[in-house]
Amino acid sequence: MSRAKSPFSPAAVLRGALVPMLVVALWQGLSMSGLINPVVLPSPVAVVERWWAYLLPPDPYDPAQGSWFLWALSGEMLFDAWSSLYRVVLGFAVGAGLALPLGLAMGGKPRIYALMDPLLQILRPIPPIAYIPLAILWFGLGNAPAVFLIAIGAFFPVLMNTIAGVRHVDGIYLRAARNLGVGRTTMFIRVILPAATPYILAGARIGIGTAFIVVIVSEMIAVNSGLGFRILEAREFMWSDKIIAGMFTIGLLGLAIDIGMNRLNNHLLRWHRGLEN
């Protein structure tokens, strides 16, 4: 794959910043023209100010309160981002943790596949959002229904890809392993599982993307913290600048999660061909 010299060379940075700067300039011009009500579309400056205020600690630093570090993290945004991230990670861990063994079993054993597949095919097309009423009925309000919804969102992508991954293991590895005297359990753990990891990780990446969508939605209905909750709360006060500031933060968190997953992928698949990005 050919790459540009460096993504951080001055020319590249300038080129990358061109379109965003144009959009912001247009936006600023539009709000300064007075044609649009600032409640509908606040100016970029107002959004940045609000974002900054959202990030900073609400109270001035008081040494009597203790650690400076904790004070620096006491801003509303960091608390919200942490709450959302916590739910994503927990829900994803539950969903993927159930999907992985089931997928391995279904991919490896046609009988288990035949047994489980019809039910899963019926459940799979139901969007996680459609589980909201049931989730509230079962788990009430709070973290539990949110984690449940996120787990469902993460479950199916990981499951389907794990099944596909196990089924697509190249027969030559199985033959080579049998020739080396590998038994069934070792075959599964040391040959089939690693051979299927490219598929499984692709599923995990889709799964965490779904989990991130679901966390924002579930925070709008079931809990009173998190980035999803905060932008809905801001709407009730007509704080459109805070809504956009929150959305921007959601975007940043999503980007951070994606970069993290990408790093993990590259590390776990460092042996894999055609992995250059």
Binding site: Y173, R175, A176, R178, N179, L180, P194, A195, T197, W271
Partner: peptide, 19 residues
């Protein structure tokens, strides 16, 4: 059945790419 008493070398190498 196959066994380690008859080691096989394949044309496609069949190395485990993750090792």
């Amino acid at each position: 059945e196959p066994g380690p008493d008859r080691g096989m070398v394949f044309q496609e190498y069949a190395l485990f790419p993750w090792m």
